[in-house]
Simulated assay, not measured.
Amino acid sequence: MAALVNGNEIILSGTVGDLYWDECFTASDVIFALAQVGRDQDVTIRLNSGGGIATEGAAIHSAIAAHRGRKVIVVEGIAASAASVIAMAGDEVVMSLGALMMVHDPSGFTFGTIDDHELQIKALTALATAMAGIYAEKTGKTVAEARADMQAEVWMTAEEAVTAGYADRTLARAANDDAAPEPTAFDYRLFEHPPERLVALADQRAWTKRARPTAASPAVPPRLKEKPMANAPAGNEPVIPENPTAALAAVVDGAKPTATASTVSRADASEIVTLCVAGGVPAMAASLLAEGATVAQAKERIGAAGEVKNLVALARRKDPTLPADLDATMLAEGKTVEQARAALFDKLVASEEQTSVSSHVPAALGNAGPTASATSMQRELKRAGLTKGA
C-alpha cells in the first residue's frame, strides 16, 4: 500500500490502482486513510503519481471530494493523467516548485467483435466526458475547452498549472532546499508527448522495467497511454459510472477500519468498491470493507440493498409524501428486505387510513371504514410486491 497516514496528512505515491507495479494506491486505500484522519478533519494530501487506472482515479477523486474537512492537495513531483483527476478534488491545489501536471484522454485495449469495440468507444467517451467535467469545474473552463486540453495531452509546469486554473498556487521552497521534487517511478514512455527529461529519468532509473506482467496483464507496448480499467476476463469488465464524481460521493463514512478489514485483499477491496458503485450504493463500500466482507457477501448485501431501493421507489409512487431518502435510512438501520417491505406496508396502510379519516368516509361504511381501507390497500400492495411475505 502506498497511502500513508501521518496525523492529518496523507501521502499518496506510485501508480493509481493495482496495475502490477511495486508501489501503488487504490480507492480502498484512500478510503481507509481518510477514515483514519476522521471525516470532519482538515487534511493535507501529498500526491506524487504518474497516473494509472482512470476509473480508479475517478473513484479516488470522489472519495476525497466527499470528505467533510478542508482538503489541501500538494502535488510533489508529478500529478499526471488519473493522478491529475485526483488533484482536482482539493479545496486548494498547491504545486511544489519543479512539479508537473498533465491531463489527457483515457485509452484502453479492446479485443473482440465490432460490438466489443463499439462498447469500448462508448465507455471511453463517457469517461472522458466525466473527466473533462471535473477539470472544467476546477479551472472555470468549459467542458469543451477542458476536453481540448485532454486531447492535446497538455503538460504543465507548476506555474503553468496555476495560470491554466488546474492549481491555485505554487509552494514556496525553503531557503535551504535547492532540490526539486522528483517524479515518482513510472514508465513515462507510455504517454504520447512526455517531456524528454522524464523519459530519460525512467530509463536511467530502470522504471521502464519495473512492471511485473502477468498472464492476465500482458506487457504494455511503448507509447500506449494508461488503461481506463484493469484487464479483466471477458464478460467481467468493471462497470464505468456515468458520473464518477457523484458515484462515490458518500463512500467515506468516518468509521475507522477494524482489524477484520485487514483480511480483505487489495483485489477484493477494489472489486467490492466497483460493485457498490455499479449497484448504486457507493455508501456501502466503507462498511463492507471495514467488516472484512468477502466479494460473495458483498454481492448479496448489494443485491438486497438494490431490492430495498426498488421497494421504496414503488412505495413512493403510491405515496409521494414518503421521504426521498427513506431507502438510505432503512439501509443505515440495517433493515433486511423483508423488514423494509413490512415497514413500507405499515406506512402506506397508515397513510391510507389517515386519508380515509380526513376525507370523511361515508357513514354507510360504519366502523368498517379503516378495515376496508386496509384490505383494499393490501390488495393493491400485493400487486405491487409490497405486501408482507410477498
Results as ranks from 00 to 15, higher is better:
Ser265Lys: 07
Ala340Gln: 12
Val349Tyr: 05
Glu353Ser: 05
Phe25Val: 05
Val337Asn: 11
Leu322Ile: 07
Val308Cys: 04
Phe109Val: 09
Glu92Asn: 04
Ala384Met: 13
Ala126Gly: 12
Thr294Ser: 14
Ala3Glu: 00
Gly366Met: 07
Met131Ser: 07
Ala167Met: 00
Phe186Gln: 00
Ala342Asp: 15
Ala259Gln: 12
Phe25Gly: 05
Cys276Pro: 01
Ile121His: 14
Thr214Lys: 12
Ala167Asp: 03
Asp18Glu: 12
Ala374Trp: 01
Trp155Val: 01
Phe191Val: 00
Ala87Lys: 04
Glu333Lys: 15
Thr44Tyr: 05
Ala174Lys: 10
Lys138Trp: 04
Val37Trp: 10
Ser28Leu: 02
Thr110Lys: 15
Ala59Lys: 05
Ala200Cys: 00
Glu92Ser: 07
Ser217Ile: 15
Leu119Gly: 06
Arg317Met: 01
Gly140Asn: 10
Leu124Ile: 11
Pro213Arg: 10
Gly369Ala: 12
Gly389Trp: 10
Thr258Tyr: 09
Val252Pro: 03
Arg210Cys: 00
Ala332His: 11
Ala249Tyr: 13
Pro257Asp: 10
Val103Arg: 09
Val162Gln: 02
Gly133Ala: 05
Thr142Trp: 03
Arg266Phe: 00
Asp105Arg: 11
Cys276Glu: 05
Asn231Trp: 07
Ser270Phe: 01
Ile60Lys: 01
Gly52Ile: 03
Lys141Asn: 10
Pro257Cys: 03
Ala185Thr: 03
Arg46Glu: 06
Ala126Trp: 10
Leu224Asn: 08
Val251Phe: 12
Ala372Thr: 07
Pro282Asp: 04
Pro213Thr: 13
Ser287Lys: 15
Trp21Asp: 08
Thr110Asp: 14
Glu242Ala: 13
Ile302Arg: 07
Ala136Lys: 08
Glu196Ser: 09
Ala304Val: 00
Thr129His: 15
Asn231Asp: 06
Ile31Thr: 14
Met101Gly: 04
Lys382Glu: 10
Ala211Gly: 13
Glu196Pro: 07
Ala82Val: 03
Ser270Gly: 02
Gly303Ser: 01
Ala390Leu: 06
Pro233Asp: 06
Val239Ala: 11
Val72Met: 04
Glu352Phe: 07
Ala343Gln: 12
Ile302Phe: 09
Glu153Ile: 02
Ala384Thr: 00
Gly108Glu: 14
Leu381Asn: 04
Glu76Pro: 02
Ala246Val: 12
Ala136Asp: 02
Ile53Gln: 04
Ser376Leu: 15
Val337Phe: 05
Ala83Arg: 02
Val357Glu: 14
Phe32Met: 13
Gln204Cys: 06
Thr375Leu: 15
Ala99Ser: 13
Thr355Asp: 14
Gly280Lys: 03
Lys382Met: 08
Arg169Leu: 05
Ala175His: 10
Ala27Val: 01
Ala250Tyr: 12
Asp268Leu: 06
Asp91Ala: 13
Lys335Met: 15
Glu338Asp: 11
Ala293Asn: 14
Arg210Asn: 02
Met102Lys: 03
Asn48Ser: 08
Lys347Tyr: 10
Ala374His: 01
Ala130Phe: 06
Ala250Leu: 15
Gln297Asn: 11
Phe32Leu: 12
Leu47Cys: 02
Val277Thr: 14
Val143Glu: 15
Glu242Gln: 08
Ala340Ile: 10
Val16Cys: 11
Thr336Gln: 06
Ala267Met: 00
Ser262Pro: 02
Ala89Asp: 05
Ile11Met: 11
Ile11Ser: 14
Thr329Gln: 09
Ala136Gly: 10
